[in-house]
Computed example of a mutant assay.
Amino acid sequence: MHCAAPCTAMGIPVILIAKNQENINRFSAIKGIIPIYTYDDLKNNRINFNPKSLNIEDLKQYMLQNLKLSTLKEMGEKIDENELMQIRHNIQYYKAY
């Protein structure tokens, strides 16, 4: 994950293979951003070895806005709580593929 996430952010196509289905939970932070395969997928030829570079610019903007609003809130500024909740929802359920 520590390699896959920055590569994806830079537009480098990524293939991520987890040891098994249970191990996939370790990658929950990038689950909706890139496909996460298992060894079983590898054995059964279910991996796309020609992934395309993903356009996640909208996700980057959500993350920056989340940081901005969260920081302002912590500093005691009044923010639009509904906007912050919507942004966090968009991040949590983001699907790039």
Rank of each mutant, 00 (worst) to 15 (best):
M75Q: 15
T71C: 13
K95Y: 13
Y97H: 06
L42S: 07
G76E: 10
E74W: 05
K43T: 10
A5C: 11
L84C: 06
I34D: 07
P51T: 08
K60F: 03
T8E: 07
G11A: 06
N82G: 06
E81T: 10
S70N: 03
Y37C: 07
M63F: 00
I36C: 12
Y37L: 01
C7E: 12
M1A: 12
N48G: 05
Y62N: 14
F27I: 11
H2L: 04
G76H: 06
A18G: 05
P51K: 10
N90M: 02
Q92A: 15
L16F: 05
P13M: 08
N20W: 13
K78S: 11
I30A: 12
I36A: 11
C3K: 05
S70V: 00
G32V: 01
T8V: 08
C7N: 09
I12Q: 05
Q86A: 10
K43M: 15
N25W: 12
N48E: 12
P6Q: 09
P35G: 04
Y97D: 09
I91R: 10
A96K: 03
I24V: 15
I47T: 07
N90P: 00
A9P: 00
Q65C: 03
S28M: 11
I15G: 01
Y93V: 05
V14F: 00
M10Q: 07
L59G: 04
K52N: 14
Y62T: 06
E57Q: 10
E81Y: 13
I24F: 04
A5D: 13
N55K: 14
N45K: 14
S53T: 14
S53K: 09
I79M: 05
L16T: 11
E77H: 08
T71S: 15
K52H: 05
K73P: 00
D80G: 03
F27T: 13
D41K: 02
K31I: 07
K19T: 07
L72T: 00
K73G: 04
Q92E: 11
M10T: 01
N20C: 12
N82I: 13
E22G: 10
K95I: 13
D58V: 07
K19H: 15
N23L: 10
M10K: 11
I12R: 11
L42R: 08
C3A: 13
K95L: 14
Q92P: 00
F27C: 13
K78P: 00
I87N: 04
K78N: 11
I34W: 02
K43N: 12
D80Q: 03
G32A: 03
D58I: 06
K19N: 14
C3Q: 09
L16W: 04
P35Y: 07
D40T: 11
D80T: 04
N82S: 14
N90K: 02
M85C: 12
L69R: 01
A9H: 04
E83V: 02
E77I: 06
I47A: 06
N66A: 13
T71G: 08
Y62P: 06
D58M: 07
L84Q: 03
Y94G: 02
M63T: 04
C3L: 14
T71L: 15
G32F: 02
I17V: 14
I33K: 02
K19Q: 14
L59H: 09
Y37K: 02
Q92N: 11
Q61T: 00
Q21E: 15
N50V: 14
N20Q: 12
E22N: 15
A4H: 10
K31G: 05
G76W: 08
I33N: 02
G32T: 03
I17E: 06
N90Y: 03
